[in-house]
């Protein structure tokens, strides 16, 4: 027998029991569950954030709108694709300032632009350490910042969510908005990495 029976305490069993009860009582829509899962697996992810970043790099008026009212500026490009009880604030990395986002109390994250967070963002190690030793944390991600850079950690514990606008790398002057967007990584919009040129183009 290849398939074993699960214990009733197993999360997979308990989730089925819970969904069945809620469905039978008319309290959840199974179709709505299917749809939100599909959206976060297929539609809503860091590509949205990358589009926003690339536009801000090529269009200074858009960048101003983005830094002033992140929620509206993101909606211009990707629509209101998430629960907007949370407003989005975009913080800009410069030569002098490096921003990083975290949520020490749970795992608040800018879903509308980055999708669902990576595991490490939700783990105790990142949440406990990045507010007190951000430079050591960045070193573990392979990012070395010089001593004179002002490191700002945004602990997003209220109803606002944060995204980092990374610096545009040197040597990208001739690139199109689409090419630029392809350079932008999720980690650079959390603030644990910089945007780099691919080795072939350096």
């Amino acid at each position: 027998m290849s398939e074993h029976h699960h214990s009733p305490a197993d999360p997979s069993i308990r989730a089925k029991a819970l969904e069945s009860l809620l469905a039978e009582k008319g309290l959840v829509s199974s179709l709505a569950i299917d749809e939100v899962v599909r959206k976060y697996e297929e539609d809503i992810g860091p590509l949205n954030g990358a589009k926003v970043v690339a536009r801000a790099w090529v269009d200074s008026e858009y960048k101003t709108r983005l830094l002033t009212d992140g929620t509206s500026a993101v909606a211009e490009l990707v629509g209101y694709n998430d629960d907007h009880s949370a407003e989005l604030v975009v913080v800009e990395n410069t030569k002098e300032v490096h921003n990083i986002i975290v949520c020490t109390l749970c795992s608040c994250y800018p879903w509308s632009v980055l999708g669902l967070p990576p595991s490490w963002y939700k783990d105790h190690a990142y949440r406990s350490r990045v507010v007190v030793e951000p430079r050591s944390v960045l070193e573990e991600f392979g990012l070395h910042l010089s001593r004179d850079i002002d490191v700002r950690v945004w602990d997003s514990v209220s109803e606002l969510r944060y995204m980092v606008l990374p610096e545009r790398p040197n040597g990208t002057d001739g690139m199109t908005e689409t090419e630029l967007a392809a350079l932008v990584t999720r980690d650079s919009m959390i603030g644990v990495a910089k945007v780099e040129m691919p080795p072939s183009q350096q």
Binding site: E3, H6, R14, A15, S20, S29
Partner: peptide, 20 residues
């Protein structure tokens, strides 16, 4: 939960379009 110890058993669904 006892109904689902058999891994292949599927939970109930509610496909009410209004609620969706």
């Amino acid at each position: 939960a006892v109904d689902f110890v058999e891994p292949a058993s599927a939970p109930s669904r509610n496909d009410d379009p209004g609620l969706t």
